[in-house]
């Protein structure tokens, strides 16, 4: 049988999906044991028990200096920045995406501007943001917005342009004005596609968040990782990375779930 026709059964597929994770974990444990056997003070690959101890200290014990649970306050600080930036990006992308996709005049005026701005490397702008907006929250949020917004606008305006011409004609023959077409025909059909776009931008958003926190911050997950890096505290860095990955994965999963539940008609449209 050809490889392209070999489909694993459902159960087998679950085992196969788990396999790479298990292999990485086993590889880590073996490597860690080997290094610790040679030098019990090795910091590069800490034992699972050492990491558990670090997590316990960071997540479940009050920090004497700040009087808070460090991992919790770091998470709140980071998520606050990430979510407010994504909220700004999403709202702006929705408005500009629909306007550019639906109105030829707006497309003529803004289309190439958005294309060009989406090519500006956001991290290169970070110094400018720090200079102009200071080192506070605003510059970090602005970096994430700048990093994600042009791509989302481009993506959404293309999705609007991809709507069948027949639908827009049909809406006009039902007497719809431009505003009504945007509100009743385009917006509801763009929302599920907006979720796709948002999912794709989660990766870049986290990247810019960690980068901004690493460079100038006094709280946040990225700040903590880059702080403890000075002490080679791999027992803290590794759990933090896993925690960040888990948060990003959960956000992605929640968005996918929202798309399926809120827009039951969308799956068959996409299948076409």
């Amino acid at each position: 049988m050809r490889l392209i026709n070999l489909r694993p059964s459902r159960q087998l597929a679950i085992y196969m999906a788990a396999l790479p994770f298990v292999l990485v974990a086993i590889g880590y444990v073996l490597g860690s044991e080997a290094r610790l056997a040679e030098n019990p003070n090795d910091k590069l690959l800490p034992a699972l028990s050492t990491m558990a101890q670090a997590v316990k200290q960071m997540a479940f014990q009050l920090d004497a200096r700040t009087g808070s649970y460090l991992m919790l306050s770091d998470t709140i600080a980071s998520l606050g920045r990430l979510l407010s930036a994504l909220a700004i990006s999403t709202a702006a992308a929705l408005v500009f995406g629909i306007v550019i996709g639906l109105l030829p005049a707006a497309n003529a005026m803004l289309g190439s501007f958005v294309s060009v701005t989406s090519m500006v490397p956001p991290l290169a702008l970070l110094p400018i943001l720090f200079i102009v907006m200071g080192l506070g929250e605003n510059s970090k949020i602005a970096l994430i917005v700048i990093g994600t917004l042009p791509g989302m606008i481009r993506d959404l305006s293309m999705r609007v342009l991809e709507l069948p011409r027949e639908q827009l004609i049909k809406a006009q023959t039902l007497g719809a004005s431009s505003w009504q077409i945007a509100l009743r025909v385009v917006l509801p059909q763009i929302l599920p596609r907006l979720i796709d776009s948002l999912r794709l931008q989660l990766g870049p958003a986290w990247l810019f968040l960690i980068a901004a926190e690493a460079i100038a911050s006094d709280s946040g997950l990225g700040y903590r990782i880059f702080l403890v890096r000075r002490y080679l505290a791999m027992d803290i860095i590794i759990p933090y990375v896993i925690w960040i990955t888990l948060l990003a994965f959960l956000m992605d999963f929640a968005l996918r779930l929202l798309q399926r539940k809120a827009f039951p008609w969308f799956a068959s449209v996409r299948a076409e």
Binding site: P164, E166, Q167, I169, K170, A171, Q172, T173, L174, G175, V185, P188, Q189, F263, W265, F266, S268, V269
Partner: peptide, 19 residues
């Protein structure tokens, strides 16, 4: 010079709104 409510239309496909 643009479609309006005086003229209804049915195309071969995409005539109804999927959402």
């Amino acid at each position: 010079p643009e479609p309006d409510a005086d003229r209804g239309v049915v195309f071969q496909r995409y005539s109804v709104f999927p959402h």
